[in-house]
Amino acid sequence: MQMHFEYSVEGGNFSQAGLTSSQVKKTLKQLNVNGAVIKRTVVALYEAEVNIVAHAYGGTILVDIDEEKIVIELRDEGPGIEDIGKTMEIGYSTATPEVREMGFGAGMGLSNMNNNSDLLEITSEVGKGTCVKIINHFKDDNNGNK
């Protein structure tokens, strides 16, 4: 089994935030993936998706699924991140006051992504954009097999 999906995300459009996460969740459910793995994947993906909406001009989400794992790559065109290490600190955020007022931008997103992915890789070029890669394996050792 090899499945590939592509989604586009519009920067600043909060009414569409979470649509890709919802689609991916549906797909994983149809594939009967372990529920605990679906939950973790959805949390990590949602946070990454919202980050594109909140910080970038736009982006693409590439999803590849095989028997063993899901690989998600979120590529955005945006300001990029100067100090990736700092973004991992809980409470650190560069979100605007408007975004914070909505309850986003509390500086918890990156740690949610980290806690809910088997592999999280962030690369960024200031002034160009950011690429986030998330890999989750379907065989979840903590929660039994699917």
């Binding site: 909060f14 009414s15 935030a17 979470g18 939950k39 949390v43 949602y46 946070e47 919202v50 909505m102 309850g103 986003f104 509390a106 918890m108 997103g109 740690s111 949610n112 806690n115 809910n116």
Partner: peptide, 24 residues
């Protein structure tokens, strides 16, 4: 009222108490 807090900590089936009133 912090969305990432709910995303990270709430469990399925919970009732969510908040003052946030938008679509997200």
């Amino acid at each position: 009222d912090l969305l990432s807090d709910v995303m990270g900590k709430a469990q399925s089936g919970m009732i969510w108490i908040t003052l946030q009133t938008h679509k997200n």
